[in-house]
Simulated scan of single mutants.
Amino acid sequence: MDNLHRRAGNHRIYEIHGNNREIKCSNGCKEIVHLPEEIKGKNIDEDLTAKEIELLTCSYCGHWMRPNILWFDEYYDEKTNKKFSSLKVAKNSGALFIIGTSGATNLPLAIAETALKYVAYIVDINTEDKHFTELIKNKKNKLIIREKSTEILKVIKEIVENLSEII
């Protein structure tokens, strides 16, 4: 949702909690579309223009569009959250990095469980134990690091760069 992976140049991204660059019908209609460039932030005392209202109205049913973000009491699915695609990637991964997240929702935990089931190595980088810690603490194929991600990722990047020079 914060767009950091995209800004870093990554292309194969599964934004399982959605993103604020896309909108979808609040009534569950057809498609997910990009947020029109004409839509800008508003101050609390500013009203939407007629054009903005038109752009934020579903062309199929006339309901309001809303951010393409998973809200409380909603369920993960493939269309919005890439549920099955992300589980397939987890199944075929050799390593899963869990960085700066609690794991308090079911799809991230399912991704970690799937990766473990298919013998991926799990690297848990957080400042404290989280839901993921319970899942992996007794596993052999894990590394638990209790540091700030900004510091440890610099070290990991350096290690990877040195390995790529050797290989």
Rank of each mutant, 00 (worst) to 15 (best):
K142V: 07
R12M: 10
A104E: 06
K88M: 08
G9C: 08
S149M: 08
Y118M: 00
T127C: 12
E134C: 08
D2M: 10
R12A: 15
I152V: 09
I23V: 15
S149C: 08
I69F: 12
N141I: 04
R146I: 02
A110R: 06
N27F: 14
L163I: 14
A115S: 11
V33M: 07
S85Y: 09
A112Q: 04
D45F: 12
L109M: 08
R146K: 14
N81A: 08
A90T: 01
C58K: 03
Y118C: 02
A112L: 05
Y76A: 01
H63P: 05
Y121M: 10
E52H: 05
L87G: 01
I145P: 05
N10V: 10
L87R: 03
M65Y: 09
I99W: 08
K157M: 12
E37Y: 08
T105F: 01
I23A: 04
N3F: 13
T105M: 02
Y76G: 06
S85K: 13
K130C: 12
E147P: 06
I32R: 07
E46M: 14
N81W: 10
I122G: 02
H131E: 11
H17K: 00
I125W: 05
I99F: 08
Y14H: 12
G41I: 13
D73M: 11
N106G: 03
E46R: 07
I111A: 02
D124S: 02
F132E: 00
L48R: 09
T133H: 09
W64V: 07
C58F: 09
R21I: 11
S93K: 03
G94R: 14
M1L: 09
R6T: 14
F97Q: 05
N10P: 01
N138D: 15
F72A: 03
A8I: 03
E147G: 01
H34C: 04
E52F: 10
L35I: 11
V155C: 06
V155F: 14
E22L: 10
A95N: 02
E52R: 05
I145C: 10
K140D: 09
R6C: 04
A110S: 13
E78A: 11
I53Y: 06
K42G: 05
K42P: 03
K91V: 08
